[in-house]
């Protein structure tokens, strides 16, 4: 453990470096903003590179020594690590590390923790070798690490016009902010999208048409190998289109394989399933195939009630540990938020 602490001692140096950056910023007022921004960007690159190479060594240390004690020592170690990763300007990685303690509640936590460590390692290595990656994957890696992408740059890319079904919406509170995820599915393009918005707790979120509606809109996607996050570039009217078309339960594994092949760090992907029969612990089809629900979903009583044991159209969020139901369409075409 001491070895690790010594290595992380480098953070102090980086803090002095921060002061240097301030001086550089102050000096740049006279010398041109562009130059200052360049310096800032370069500094960020080197800070991130240093932070991630330290992360690589930290992970190797953990695996070298064994993770058997993670239930006792993990949470404190991870808090410490997350703080240093924030200092290293890698908020994406810091967020993943902060969420590590969630796996400890599960019975199979050693496997879940190894999976998380392995994917962090993969990300750090991918960033180190970023120059050799194809451009979309390089963008995915940078986004996962936490490099910001401006709205303007996203809106500057060609937008995708379609009739988009709003298939799910979920609000989650994190750090005094409410994060709203709205998932969309394009009728013509078959593309899936997720629009993310934030607002302080207690303040109303930007309104969005509710699940079950269909909007005629242009979406601009954030760059990446498996693009999902998007902005609404232009919104026209609501369209009356009925329940969205869906995928068969049996097609889901191939679909997810394709997504993960492009972006192995994907931990959330929307699905619209057609002809799915809800069960107490999963979604089945009439051939005996089934997809498990996430353990935190519990028994989906309202979804079961809507289905009555018959096939329905269901939108759900795929996660590595199972599905989280979002929306169901009942026999009469009514929409039920789950």
């Amino acid at each position: 453990m001491r070895r690790v602490k010594e290595r992380w001692g480098g953070a102090t140096t980086r803090n002095t470096g921060d002061a240097g950056a301030d001086r550089a910023r102050a000096g740049a007022e006279g010398g041109g903003r562009a130059a200052a921004r360049r310096t800032q960007a370069e500094q960020r690159e080197s800070r991130v590179a240093a932070g991630l190479s330290e992360l690589e060594r930290w992970l190797a240390d953990q695996i070298g020594q064994g993770i058997a004690q993670a239930r006792q020592t993990g949470p404190a170690d991870w808090d410490d690590l997350a703080r240093r990763l924030v200092d290293a300007q890698t908020p994406g990685v810091a967020g993943t590390v902060t969420r590590l303690s969630r796996v400890l509640a599960a019975e199979d936590w050693p496997g879940l923790l190894l999976a998380e460590y392995a994917l962090l390692h993969l990300l750090a290595v991918a960033h180190r070798r970023a120059a050799a990656l194809p451009e979309p994957l390089r963008q995915t890696v940078r986004a996962r690490v936490g490099f910001p992408v401006t709205r303007e740059s996203v809106l500057a890319t060609p937008a995708v016009p379609d009739h988009w079904d709003v298939v799910g919406c979920r609000d989650e509170e994190q750090d005094r902010l409410v994060a709203r995820r709205v998932w969309l599915a394009g009728r013509t393009t078959g593309r899936l999208a997720m629009v993310l918005s934030f607002s302080p707790v207690g303040q109303p979120l930007e309104s969005f048409p509710p699940p079950g509606t269909t909007i005629d809109a242009d979406l601009a996607f954030y760059p990446g190998a498996s693009p999902l996050r998007a902005l609404v570039a232009e919104r026209r009217n609501l369209v009356d289109a009925g329940p969205p078309p869906g995928t068969k339960v049996s097609q889901v594994p191939a679909l997810i394989a394709e997504v993960l092949a492009a972006d192995p760090w994907t931990d959330s992907w929307p699905l619209v399933l057609d002809g799915a029969v809800p069960c107490p612990d999963g979604l089945a089809d009439d051939e005996g195939n089934a997809l498990p629900l996430h353990p935190s979903a519990g028994v989906p009583w309202r979804l079961l009630a809507v289905s009555g044991g018959r096939p329905v159209t269901v939108a759900a969020e795929w996660t590595p540990r199972g599905l989280l139901p979002l929306t169901a369409w009942d026999e009469e075409g009514g929409v039920v938020r789950l």
Binding site: P253, I256, C279, G282, G288, N289, A290, G309
Partner: peptide, 14 residues
């Protein structure tokens, strides 16, 4: 994660 085959489901009788 990618190769997860659909499990054998037991939907309740309708």
């Amino acid at each position: 994660r990618a190769g997860r085959r659909p499990g054998r489901g037991g939907p309740p009788p309708p």
